[in-house]
Amino acid sequence: MREFLDMGGYAAFVWPAYAVTLAVVVANIVWARRLLRQAQAAARRRMAAAGAQP
């Protein structure tokens, strides 16, 4: 395990590279889902406002 984490002396480069990529992937997933929820909430509000004034 220690040997694996050491990455043949490249640990200081390999792990940050994987960490940055993972962070970008996770951020994209969270970000896209939040954007959709916000757009749905905004559309619902618009509909409610439009429905209130015939």
Partner: peptide, 30 residues
């Protein structure tokens, strides 16, 4: 992964562009 992200974001973009379409009312149950 890109395809999945694009499809989710596309829905948000469509909702933002469609101001008061009846189908949104139907879709969101609003």
């Amino acid at each position: 992964l890109f395809a999945a992200l694009l499809l989710v974001r596309l829905r948000a973009e469509i909702l933002a562009r469609e101001r008061n379409a009846a189908w949104i009312r139907e879709e969101l149950g609003a």
